[in-house]
Amino acid sequence: MHIADIGDIKLHYREDGDPDGAPIVFANSLGTDFRLWDKIVPRLPKGLRIIRFDKRGHGLSDCPPGPYSMGMLVRDTERLLDHLKVKDCVFVGLSIGGMIAQGLAVKRLDLVRGLVLSNTAAKIGQPQMWQDRIAAVKENGIEALADATMERWFSRPFRETAELTGWRNMMTRQPEEGYIGCCAAISGTDFYTPTSGLRLPTLGIAGSEDGSTPPDLVRETVGLIPGSKFHLIRRAGHIPCVEQPEEYADALIGFLKEVGHV
């Protein structure tokens, strides 16, 4: 277990692969911890330095009182990468992790040489939707959102498997304060203008059954960045790295090869 003290918060992170290799950093979605990437890491080529972390309010990282801003989450990530002496990484962000990726690339292009924006957008939903979600959690806990969230996260066939129980439990066992804090961060974020100014290799990944960030929304966001590529994974919802890990890893490895990162 590795804990980085980055000043006002301590973040839980994990490193795999070659400590001297080209860095690839993964940022996960709302309501999950870095086990989100467990099916992807073993499929990656040897020679990479693979870094995963729990954002504030999630997993084993600190959970300070909310609300949080996207600026806070970006700053946490920036400080973690500085702490780990990371430069020129490929940054893979899913959902809120993809928003963090966009913000980090805008702020610190020295840290990021390529982006993978998975099941994310420059703006996700409307503020009222997030306020309603926050109110529901305050009144009845994360459990109140769990079933509807699983329908957005996963396709029907996956929801009929025993594995769904683990993902549902992961979500409901996240700290409520951290979940609410990150909902507030998403609610306040609109990256259309800053993301449209980015000029770096970018791959967008979407799931055909995604009920949170539909494929057209992901395509629109990566389309803001000239030269970006887009990959649609069928038979997958909001978390295709769990449902279709082989295709997800293949798309990711292809991008890494294309940009000369492996």
Rank of each mutant, 00 (worst) to 15 (best):
A236S: 14
L36E: 01
L94C: 15
S29K: 09
P64F: 08
V90Y: 04
P67I: 09
P65T: 14
D62A: 12
F53M: 11
T193I: 15
E78V: 12
T120I: 00
D82A: 15
V242S: 00
V74K: 05
G114R: 05
G71I: 11
S69Q: 14
R234L: 09
K46T: 07
A105T: 07
Q174P: 04
I253W: 05
C241Q: 13
A184L: 09
L145E: 03
T221Y: 00
G17F: 00
L81N: 12
E163N: 10
C183V: 06
I96N: 07
Q174M: 14
K10H: 09
I134R: 09
S196T: 07
V137E: 06
A121T: 13
P194H: 05
A27S: 15
M1R: 04
D147C: 13
Y13W: 05
R235M: 08
T120N: 00
E243W: 03
W130D: 13
I142E: 04
G207E: 09
A144M: 07
P65E: 15
G114M: 04
F255Y: 03
G71F: 09
M72R: 12
P245A: 11
L203S: 02
P64N: 12
G97V: 12
E160M: 12
I180M: 14
T32I: 07
P23I: 04
N28V: 04
E177A: 12
L252C: 07
P127C: 12
L44H: 15
D8Q: 13
G223N: 00
A135C: 12
P201C: 02
V242F: 00
K87Y: 05
G59S: 02
K55H: 15
D38E: 14
L217P: 04
S118E: 03
P127K: 11
P215S: 01
L145I: 04
E151L: 12
E220A: 13
I225V: 06
Y179A: 05
R49M: 00
V242L: 01
D88H: 06
A251P: 01
L44E: 14
L36P: 00
L232C: 01
A105V: 08
K229V: 00
L117T: 03
R108D: 10
W130I: 12
G237T: 00
G254V: 05
G227P: 13
V25W: 08
I40K: 01
G21E: 05
L115Y: 10
S29H: 07
D62Q: 10
I24D: 06
R159K: 06
F230P: 03
A135K: 15
A185W: 14
H12V: 06
K39F: 12
N140R: 14
A136H: 11
A162P: 15
D33M: 03
Q131Y: 09
T165E: 10
L109Y: 09
L232N: 01
R168F: 01
G7Q: 03
C89G: 02
W37N: 03
E177V: 07
R14L: 12
P127Q: 11
T213E: 02
P65G: 13
S69E: 15
V106C: 15
P215D: 00
I3R: 11
P201Q: 04
L117K: 02
T213I: 03
L11K: 08
T193P: 14
E247Y: 08
G57I: 08
I239H: 01
T172Q: 05
